[in-house]
Nucleic acid binder design. Structure first.
Length: 698
DNA sequence: GGATGCTTAATTTTT
DNA sequence: TTAAGCATCC
């Protein structure tokens, strides 16, 4: 193993392999490098079997990257190392041997996402006759999730319930757990909780996994929650070969129960723990690093450390205040085009934002110039109705107890099965302790049952892509959409085709994939970009999803009070500090150049808001910033654009038109002053002023 | 049971 | 702005 490229501290971290090790690694200090080399070192120099190594990362993306990098170091031995997120490792345990059975689940359980959880909770509120106006389903879901992250089961929570609200909450929680179990379903939090329960109740099983994973490495330890903490502690308690890496300045998942104190407590848990500090940054220019340090300095709660770099000073950080969010996006696109014309690759550029909703304007502007881009970590595609419907069919075929999927598709497409029938089925199912699907014994519902039964029969004899075609036909989804003859239905069909290209991609890359494997894969990796191949594209993502990544050129947009820091965090100093850490993460992603951008006005919730620049801008010392604010000039330009055409344009149904923002579309309806134009997804049909300047006939 | 139209709430962040 | 939930009518 080539260790010559490591600095002294990194080398120490790689070589220390007798007992607990804590690595405090600043941003860009080469921690992934240390982790991958350490794994390679364990295998090649200490001759540990790859089978005995467990490496936990925070995202699937990070896991894949680590796999690839270890593979590059040691070749195919890398395939035997368990490298995954906590959640997918949890799935793996639950699917192995009889583990699911031991916990009272069938082996073919399926995973519900947070949208499904919400559906379940709404249903429970109805059953309990609780007013969803008072008992907000979303906050109930979040409450239940955070209880689970803190490892408080209904019986544990009972001790803390005082108010009526809390009692109702407990009631919903109980019922929620019951419903999931009845449906042979688990949620994301269960993926951590159930393995812990398994280990607690079955000493033999725990011993097996302790024996198996003698060496444990955990990345992003500052973002572990109580359940993850407990889980790793149990696994490591026998051999104590546990290495954790983290940076308290980068803890950004407090809202999900993560606790950076886990990192500070490591030395208390393991009295003999060795601590190594990685403080040299290899990633960013001095200017960028200085700016990051300036910002994070304003947090009171932090461990003191000094991140430094030998890198050159570099350019100043470009700060730009635009007139509105469109100008902001235009500025970014303009700068990207300049960069690309000077030889920069699209893939080395990232645009970062605080909230997912911000991606839309950016996409519109990028689309106008036809630049290649991808929205990383967006589960938008998988949350589309048609995709969820299809997946619900697949889930039901795989696990007939899945009542959530059952209720979603029992009457889609329309089969004249309404609330009355559902109620009867529910009653019967409750009485006999069976699932809704099993409760079917008569009427129209039998036809539905037959469809599913037939699909079950063929599922093992056809490829996944073929199965999807069969589902689309047998269910009647395809027929339904084809007969609609609307643009929207057409787009839905296109999306279903795209889904098939994803499964086809799977089959080409990894050989035949079973329905089972596929369902687990997509319930944990909700990002279809992970399966695409053309990678030279601009990266758009939230700051949360960019953690662990780096780019030559980074644009951070929406750096405004109320957006970043987010309005919901302004009340509480703790939340504000998390926003600041988030800002620190954003800044430290940049290697060569950093752009901080905001807008004077921005449309939020459909109305115009005016926000001052983010306090984080002011926290960076002035000499690091290259500020450029041309708002007045932009204001004039905007006024100009809003002037309408003088001459009346005559549109007819069927005409093709061009719109500056939405591109080419087709006229579907004309009234006195308005034209309805159908644009390609994601814009749909828009009603537009006939004589607006942005619209023209082609 | 299904279609239509009105009111209102929602946007933090992810596995 | 948009999506979801509810009321009303066929």
């Amino acid at each position: 193993m080539d260790l010559t490229k490591l600095n002294d501290e990194q080398l120490k971290a790689v070589k220390y392999n007798d007992g607990p090790l804590l690595i405090i690694a600043g941003a860009g200090s080469g921690k992934t490098r240390v982790l991958t080399v350490k794994i390679a070192y364990l295998i090649e120099n200490i001759h540990i079997s790859p089978y005995n190594i467990l490496a936990i990362t925070f995202t699937n993306k990070a896991a894949n990257e680590m796999k690839e990098r270890v593979h590059n170091l040691i070749g195919s031995d890398a395939d035997f190392i368990q490298i995954s997120t906590f959640h997918s490792f949890g799935v793996r345990i639950l699917r192995e041997k009889d583990n699911a059975k031991l916990l009272g689940y069938d082996k073919n359980f399926s995973i519900v996402d947070s949208e499904d959880s919400l559906v379940v909770i709404k249903k429970i509120l109805k059953e309990l006759n609780l007013d969803p106006k008072y008992y907000n389903p979303r906050s109930l879901r979040n409450k239940i999730s955070s209880l689970k992250n803190d490892m408080l089961m209904p019986d544990d929570y009972e001790k803390y319930t005082a108010s009526d609200y809390e009692k109702a909450c407990l009631n919903v929680y109980r019922k929620y757990q019951k419903k999931l179990k009845e449906g042979n379903l688990v949620d994301f939090d269960d993926l951590l909780l159930l393995p812990i329960k398994l280990f607690r109740e079955n000493k033999k099983v725990l011993e097996y996994y302790q024996e198996r994973f003698k060496y444990i490495l955990i990345d992003e330890y500052q973002d572990t929650n109580e359940a993850q903490y407990k889980f790793s502690k149990m696994l490591a308690s026998k051999y104590r070969n546990i290495t954790v890496v983290g940076d308290d300045s980068q803890c950004i998942y407090g809202f999900r129960g993560s606790n950076y104190k886990n990192i500070l407590n490591f030395e208390k848990d393991y009295k003999d723990a060795k601590t190594i500090l990685l403080e040299e940054n290899y990633r960013s220019t001095t200017n960028i690093l200085d700016a990051a340090n300036d910002v994070i300095k304003h947090n009171k709660n932090k461990k003191d450390k000094s991140l430094w770099t030998k890198n050159e000073k570099g350019n100043k950080i470009k700060y730009y205040r635009a007139y509105n969010e469109k100008e902001e996006a235009r500025y970014v696109v303009r700068k990207i085009k300049e960069l690309v014309s000077s030889g920069v690759n699209y893939e080395d550029i990232a645009i970062l934002y605080r909230t997912n909703a911000q991606s839309r304007v950016l996409e519109e502007e990028i689309l106008k110039d036809n630049l290649p881009y991808k929205v990383v970590g967006s589960f938008y595609f998988y949350s589309r109705k048609e995709i969820k419907d299809l997946i619900a069919y697949l889930r039901l075929i795989y696990n007939e107890k899945d009542n959530v999927s059952f209720l979603r598709v029992i009457n889609y497409p329309k089969r004249k099965i309404g609330p009355k029938t559902i109620e009867q089925l529910t009653e019967k199912a409750d009485k006999e302790g069976i699932s809704l699907y099993e409760a079917i014994d008569s009427g129209k519902e039998l036809e539905f049952k037959k469809i599913i039964e037939d699909l079950k029969k063929v599922k093992d004899n056809v490829t996944l892509t073929e199965l999807i075609d069969k589902v689309l036909d047998a269910s009647g989804i395809r027929k339904e959409l084809e007969s609609e003859k609307t643009l929207e239905a057409e787009i839905r069909l296109e999306n279903l085709e795209e889904f098939k290209s994803i499964t086809r991609g799977f089959e080409e890359k990894e050989g035949l994939i079973s329905l089972e494997d596929f369902l687990f894969e997509i319930s944990l990796v909700s990002d279809k970009e992970e399966y695409s191949t053309d990678n030279n594209r601009i990266n758009l993502m939230t700051i949360h999803s960019v953690k662990g990544l780096e780019f030559d050129y980074v644009f951070v947009v929406g750096v405004e009070e109320g957006l970043f820091p987010h309005i919901n965090s302004l009340m509480d100093e703790k939340d504000l500090e998390e926003e600041r850490r988030l800002c620190y993460v954003a800044i430290t992603r940049a290697k060569k150049d950093l752009y901080l951008i905001n807008a004077k006005r921005r449309v939020l919730f459909g109305n115009d808001e005016i926000n001052p620049p983010s306090r984080f801008i002011g926290e960076i010392r002035e000499e690091l910033l290259d500020a450029n604010t041309e708002i007045e000039k932009q204001e004039e330009k905007i006024k100009d654009e809003e002037i309408f055409r003088d001459e009346e344009v005559d549109y007819n149904v069927g005409d093709y038109v061009y719109h500056e923002t939405f591109g080419t579309g087709k006229v579907v309806e004309v009234t006195e002053t308005l034209v309805s134009v159908a644009f390609k997804h994601p814009y749909g049909v828009k009603k537009l002023m006939k004589n607006h300047k942005k619209l023209s006939k082609i």
